[in-house]
């Protein structure tokens, strides 16, 4: 399946990346199914940014309306301002504004199954398993009271101090801020609770006591 619509965590917030070559109706349809499939998982009030260069005014309005229907806020920005902001962040080493809900915690008390996606500005606590083929993206930390087998991304806005904890840590990929670690090709079931964090510019996983 082609992916015309993607959500990406960037330094300055959650960003919607659109395929420029796809038609607007395709984009709208795919976005709708995507939002529908991960409904309940986007926290209310999550701000999603989109680079508006390729979009017409009415298309921008349609997107904003669509997002509004799911309780999300769409922020349009041109390519230049996005670049300028990125630059500003790099230069000043401080976020230009506080991300809303960054310090909030979302609790999910069910298993995240293949094909499901959890996206949240703050931290996430999952009481259940994260199954292969699923994705969990958080602005803050991720705590899994169960087995983690999917893709987990903590500190999606660039927080290098974010951590991921799981009872059994056997994810396909671990991402923290801008770093990615892949699971070894032959993985055994871990016996104790483990924590993933960034140490000396690398993701490390070590056992901890809970």
């Amino acid at each position: 399946m082609s992916e015309d619509v993607k959500f990406k965590g960037s330094r300055s917030g959650l960003q919607l990346v659109l395929n420029d070559t796809a038609s607007f109706s395709d984009i709208e349809r795919e976005l709708k199914t995507k939002l529908e499939s991960s409904l309940n998982f986007f926290c209310k009030g999550t701000i999603v940014k989109v680079i508006s260069g390729a979009l017409k005014k009415e298309e921008q309005d349609r997107l904003a309306e669509l997002f509004h229907g799911y309780g999300l806020i769409l922020r349009l920005m041109s390519l230049e301002t996005e670049k300028a902001q990125e630059k500003k962040i790099i230069e000043k080493k401080e976020p230009e504004e506080e991300i809303p809900g960054l310090h909030d915690m979302t609790v999910i008390d069910k298993t995240i199954r293949g094909g499901q996606e959890v996206v949240c500005n703050g931290s996430i606590l999952i009481c259940g398993n994260v199954n292969p083929g699923s994705q969990v993206i958080a602005g803050g930390n991720i705590d899994i009271r169960g087995t983690c087998r999917g893709i987990v991304h903590a500190g999606a806005f660039g927080d290098t101090k974010a951590i991921i904890v799981a009872d059994h840590m056997m994810p396909m990929q671990v991402r923290i801020a801008e770093l990615i670690a892949r699971a070894p090709d032959d993985m055994e079931k871990s016996k104790c609770t483990e924590r993933a964090y960034i140490k000396n510019g690398q993701i490390v996983i070590e056992p901890i006591e809970r």
């Binding site: 499939s37 069910k110 199954r113 293949g114 094909g115 499901q116 199954n131 292969p132 083929g133």
Partner: peptide, 13 residues
């Protein structure tokens, strides 16, 4: 098993 997992998710929805 993967597909069953996906189906269980879909049934939940």
């Amino acid at each position: 098993v993967r597909d069953a997992d996906k189906i269980i998710g879909e049934l939940g929805r």
